[in-house]
Design a binder for these strands. Structure first.
Length: 389
DNA sequence: AACCTTTACAACCGCATGGAT
DNA sequence: AATCCATGCGGTTGTAAAGGT
């Protein structure tokens, strides 16, 4: 296929951008907006290819980009997410909205990777290379658990991404869909000063990291407030890929109760079955859900519970769509004031926190605890997470 | 001061994907 | 269905600045 490569055209500048180039690009985008990158350089008077312009814009000139030193919390987030997601920089970047994937990737490669290595931790597997940190032995079960954790987290992220995408498509004509969008979209409005919950002391790698960091900076362990780490729960931009896992989802009564408590406080996890039990789902939405997934295949009666052991459940036999959609539904119903939402109240308009704001804050606060508690509950043998008594 | 090495980061490149025609 | 195009992503490279000898 003879794809045209704009960068192969002669006479185009390569290499570092000059202030003049930046100014031209900025001025053009200010006036015409971004997009049509191929045509942009000629119109903007730039001797650059469109790709180069797009990159310069998204990685450097775009407003809202935070530059400079990464905070401890940002470092922790990157390490944690890298353990879960691997080199999916764009996915990681959605959890650090002011950082670009390129910047995170560079920071990982030039700082974090080396420092982890120095700490005796393999940056790719996140396993200790030696027993120097007092870590326990790593075995194949650990690796399997890590893999399951990553899969579970991926499923959650992709579910949220799907939710955002779908709700945007349907929001105009369907108030229920507006509710879905409201509960998931406006990460940009989350107040920067929201306090982060204290992370449970269960991350071996991060704890070691903390200690190292606090030694070098004099900072305390797990600073929880005033940092600008934003909740990763809301702003996601993933493609939905087929997930190669099938397993059976089943919940006991107690586990459903526990899950309900959990769902009341967090958007992180829950199941379709739970929602079916608790929420009077509007017919319209129910129909849509029934049409787009295998709700009826869901069982939640006995034996293994994915809530208590999501990794195990995922590894067994439940269609992933159930799990994924489960997350979606909890998000959809995780707002306290359903009536006002359905009535079409303005939510988070103009950056103001309105009827749903309490939940955003709650979700923000519960995010880490939720993930880590789940992980602790379900993967005592995890290579990354273990109870630190 | 000159040279070499390392570090940090911007930018590039190739590929994948999805939509439009 | 085939092709083109725009865009996104992740790996890699280029290079200026900083540090060391």
């Amino acid at each position: 296929m003879g794809r045209c490569r704009c960068c192969e055209k002669g006479g185009l500048k390569k290499g570092p951008w000059t202030p003049e180039d930046d100014q031209k690009l900025l001025a053009y985008i200010e006036e015409h907006g971004q997009g049509s990158w191929r045509a942009l350089p000629a119109k903007a008077g730039l001797q650059r290819c469109g790709k180069s312009c797009r990159l310069r814009w998204t990685n450097y000139l775009r407003p809202g980009i935070k530059r400079g030193k990464f905070s401890l919390q940002e470092e922790q987030t990157i390490i944690l997410l890298h353990a879960l997601l691997g080199n999916r920089w764009s996915a990681i970047a959605t959890h650090l909205p002011k950082r670009t994937d390129n910047e995170i990737k560079n920071y990982w490669n030039t700082h974090l990777k080396k420092r982890l290595t120095k700490m005796g931790i393999d940056p790719m597997t996140h396993k200790p290379k030696t027993e120097a940190l007092g870590s326990r032995r790593w075995d194949s079960k650990d690796a399997a658990n890590l893999s399951h954790m990553a899969q579970w987290e991926s499923a959650r992220l992709e579910a949220e991404a799907r939710l955002v995408r779908e709700s945007k498509l349907l929001a105009v004509s369907n108030p229920i869909q507006q509710q879905v969008m409201i509960s998931s979209a406006p990460v940009q409005n989350i107040n920067k000063t929201l306090a982060q919950p204290a992370l449970p002391p269960c991350l071996d790698v991060l704890k070691a990291w903390q200690e190292l960091w606090s030694k070098s900076t004099g900072a305390g362990i797990f600073p929880v407030a005033g940092d600008d780490l934003e909740s990763p729960t809301f702003k996601l931009n993933f493609s939905v890929n087929a997930f190669p896992i099938e397993s059976t989802v089943a919940l006991t009564e107690n586990q459903v109760a526990a899950a309900l408590d959990f769902a009341a406080n967090s958007s992180v996890t829950c199941g379709v079955g739970i929602i079916k039990e608790v929420c009077e789902m509007p017919e319209e939405l129910k129909e849509r859900l029934d049409n787009t997934m295998s709700l009826q295949e869901m069982t939640y009666t006995t034996e293994s519970a994915w809530f208590a052991d999501p990794f195990r459940a995922m590894s067994e036999s439940t269609p992933l769509s159930n799990i994924v959609e489960g997350f979606t539904d909890v998000l959809a119903y995780n707002c306290d004031d359903k009536n006002s939402l359905l009535a079409g109240d303005n939510i988070m308009e103009n950056g103001d926190k309105t009827s749903c704001s309490g939940n955003f804050e709650e979700n923000n606060n519960h995010y880490w605890n939720s993930i880590l508690n789940l992980v602790n509950a379900s993967s005592s043998g995890s290579p990354v997470f273990y109870s630190n008594k």
